[in-house]
Design a protein around this nucleic acid. Structure first.
Lengths: 340, 340
DNA sequence: AGACAATGTGAGATCGATCTCACACATATT
DNA sequence: AATATGTGTGAGATCGATCTCACATTGTCT
């Protein structure tokens, strides 16, 4: 009952030619007689011959698969990117392996090792850590195509696609300052993460430009999930002198902050103002709608995939560094603060 | 500059033993002398030997990868499932290849063919079509482990994990009827999709039980994206006699309906009532909060992965069919309709 | 002493596709 | 007639890991 898939040998036997000839007929290279070619085609057809990509890959050293290591596919930002990469990979005859690092460096490393032993052709990685990247340097050293996404890793000379995190954060905080806020909270990820560092820098730069003394008590760190962000927000706003405005560094955190505010009875924008980094589907469904810094999510995955497939098809330019602009989208979650 | 990864041959050469012995030492089977074993270990260590999973797979016929073909990773429902499967796969030493069928049967078929030629060990599939499934039957015939998810395919005898779609839809519509609605709209997917059929059945059953004549003009079909759902909702509610309540069959459609209502100036629940199938993150962020039929999303992926890995480890029970219950979560998007 | 296990090791086949090489036969060129 | 060129085909090596088998070398038991 358990049919094995047909092999080239089977096809060759049925067509009564050698394996070499069968291969020539099916891949159309070298000399093959018309008649022979047709016999082989017919035999292949009849047996439903598909070829074994594993064997092919072993021979030529590479599997037509690209790997993608992201923080978490459940984050809509990464889901969108994964989707776009998959579409382009499919167009290029490749499949996509996905792994979540869950923002753990160890997991990122072991995932990468596991995928490398598959002789995968190339990788798109959103590195967990900005500076601990021997594993990525290893890829470069062995000439394995790599595109970094969303985040840059120091000392790793590869293509990358990022957005202007610092500028985006700066715009957000400058806007809050312009609206009269001076106690501006920051809800951010782990500082190992590149985007977190950059957004933090933007935050500090804007504060400095506004002549505001930074205050560590206004900064909360949390994992990038709705649940953790809720807790962090509650901690932040339970202080004696809570912030009057909050800047959150990604959309899951923005959602967490919203939930926290609701549970604490803090009304937006009356009791506190809010700006989030990264626009999200439902930012306009809330009342008021949420003011955000948006990034061109739909471009990032496509750009990364394009860079990767350029490399795979042999391009060997110096590493390309793409940086997309961010945009402040003013909605209704920030109110003017009359200085106290 | 381009180091190739070390092979077993390299290790054997460095340890000054044969390939066979090196393999025995590294995989600990057969007889190997202690001293020899250590020499080999040391050599492997030194060369950073990793083994080539491709070659291993070619030899034993299977690659430690499972494939996952879903409608669209961007749908949070599928993203969650993909994530849970990936976690379990990782625990079992497997990687995950993801493909989006984009609800196209042709794409599902070609994706599956492509993954099969990789000698992937097993599949989790959310089949696009309820009845056109020769490709899935082919898997079963060749004894490739397959778990269907979210949807069942007729005549495919395999494990599956679904939810009680019909019951969920029935509960939703019964609730609307109990609240006095009689012109109840349905916004659904393509009828090829299994869940769509079942939810439609639930809808009809509830109407029949309530003594309400079904009316095709109250039923709109749309692809499962926010954008398409917006259009479909607008068409539905632009009629002379629009519905007084709407039941949407998934969370993206629910979001689309919300957007459409807003753009049409229809206020919920005052001008129209709304229930969605599948709870979503932000259903409680809107004002009013959205009443939904929830399904245990976090269980589905895990259950499917467990079934798959049970098969992979040799279990050969008759196909298991898991069906999770759904639950009506009453929030604020349905109002009592005083019959007109 | 001779037979028989237990313990170690290596040579070579295997998985499936591809590619180099050598060989066959035709036709064309001097 | 002898050499070159063009076509078509098959034998066998290769990719890397694994596994069967055969062959050693010990030690143990009658």
């Amino acid at each position: 009952m358990v049919r094995k898939p047909a092999t080239l040998k089977d096809v060759a036997a049925l067509a009564d030619v050698s394996r070499a000839t069968a291969a020539r007929a099916l891949n159309s290279y070298g000399y093959v007689g018309d008649e022979t070619a047709q016999k082989v085609q017919a035999a292949a057809e009849k047996l439903g011959y598909r070829g074994n990509r594993l064997a092919q890959a072993l021979r030529n050293g590479q599997l037509p698969i690209v790997g993608c290591i992201l923080g978490d596919i459940q984050n809509p930002f990464f889901a969108r990117i994964a989707h776009d990469i998959e579409v382009l990979a499919r167009e290029c005859g490749h499949n996509l392996v996905i792994g979540s690092s869950e923002e753990e460096l160890g997991q990122e490393i072991s995932l990468l090792a596991s995928l490398r032993s598959l002789s995968i052709r190339g990788f798109v990685v959103a590195p967990t850590s900005a500076d601990n990247n021997a594993h990525l340097q290893g890829l470069i050293a062995e000439n394995v195509p790599l595109v970094l996404i969303d985040r840059v890793a120091e000392d790793v000379e590869s293509d990358h696609v990022v957005v202007d995190n610092e500028g985006g954060a700066r715009k957000a905080v400058e806007y809050l300052i312009a609206m009269g806020h001076r106690r501006i909270g920051l809800l951010q990820d782990d500082m190992r993460i590149f985007t977190s560092r950059e957004r933090m820098t933007g935050y500090r730069t804007a504060l400095a430009a506004g002549g505001i003394e930074p205050d560590d008590r206004l900064i909360a760190v949390s994992q990038s999930t709705v649940e953790h962000a809720v807790d962090a927000t509650i901690r932040l706003f339970s202080q004696k002198m809570p912030p009057t405005a909050l800047f959150t560094v990604d959309s899951l955190m923005t959602q967490g902050a919203l939930l926290a505010f609701r549970s604490m009875g803090i009304s937006i924008p009356h009791d506190a103002s809010l700006i989030g980094f990264d626009d999200f589907n439902l930012a306009t469904f809330t009342d008021p709608q949420i003011t955000v810094v948006s990034q061109p999510v739909s471009e990032i995955g496509r750009a990364a995939a394009r860079l990767l497939f350029d490399r795979l098809s042999g391009k060997s330019d110096p590493p390309q560094k793409i940086r997309f602009e961010t945009k402040l989208i003013v909605r209704g979650s920030v109110s003017r603060h009359s200085a106290g």
